[in-house]
Amino acid sequence: MRTTPATPAPRAISAPRATLTTPASRDTRAISATRGIPAGRASRSACGRAAGAAGALPVLAAVLAASAGCGIGGGDGSSVADKRSLVIGVKADQPGLGLKGPNGAYDGFDVQVATYVAGRLGVPRDRIRFRTTPSSERERALARGDVDLIFATYSITATRKQQVTFGGPYYVPHQDTLVRADEGSIKNVRDLKGRRICAVTGSNSWRRVIEERKVAATPVQAATYGQCMDKLAANQLDAVSTDDVILAGFAAGRERFRIVNAPFTDEKYGVGIKKGDLKGCEAVNRAITEMYQDGQAQRFLERWFQRSGLKLTTSVPQFEGCS
């Protein structure tokens, strides 16, 4: 399966510097005119070049810059839409979503979506570096600039929106509950009353049960969902309640676990972007729209979750809006 979408070679960038002024600016306009293909970075570099090469003739520079649609406020240069390479934060321990293989390569639904979106932003696969970003690290990693984008089962919440700009959501999973196969008394979230559930640091899921639904379950701390599974198997807790796609990944191929299939929320998996990068957020949203339009989203979903029997939604989710 082709995972990297066909993207135009970043022409303006590979072209030799300061040789072609007018053709470069024309080129940029041609790219920008094609809707949906990220033209931001091409136009930015061409803008600088047109102005630079014509520096000796200020009037000419102004005319060129104006005709190429360049403006000072066009971007502050730090937008993910303008980057030549990207560091993308993903999970390393979530089968089906973000899993680091023995050879060090990451794979999963999130990883594939990230690769597609980066491709639409003009960054081919060989210029993407994936980086493990645990739930508790996500906001800090973005703020510090350790990662440019996060595709790591990152639910958009009102609280997180204060620190992070969210593109997407690229998928809307639902919270469900995973139990041991021999567990018969847990049929929905209310049955978790008095039972031990897994509380992963930095994750919102257990709060949805205990705080939002006000089900008096006992949280048992764990660092990752992988640990939750070990504890569930070892009878150190009774249930793991989180997004169905996460549960599906862990349940796949394990006879010992069972999803109770009583979804009780709509989550929103967003793309974490540094707070304030609206241009990057809009570019990410365009890429996600295209991913659903060209059928790739459906292919990714089917590849990773079809066997789990989850009901998959293959139309574009309602975006959060960039803020």
Partner: peptide
């Protein structure tokens, strides 16, 4: 979602136009 995203799109295109054209 389709209808809502169309509204957001108009917002995005205004923001882009505003930033580039106004400074131009």
């Amino acid at each position: 979602p389709q209808a809502y995203n169309l509204t957001l799109d108009s917002g995005a295109s205004v923001r882009q136009t505003y930033e580039t054209k106004r400074s131009a």
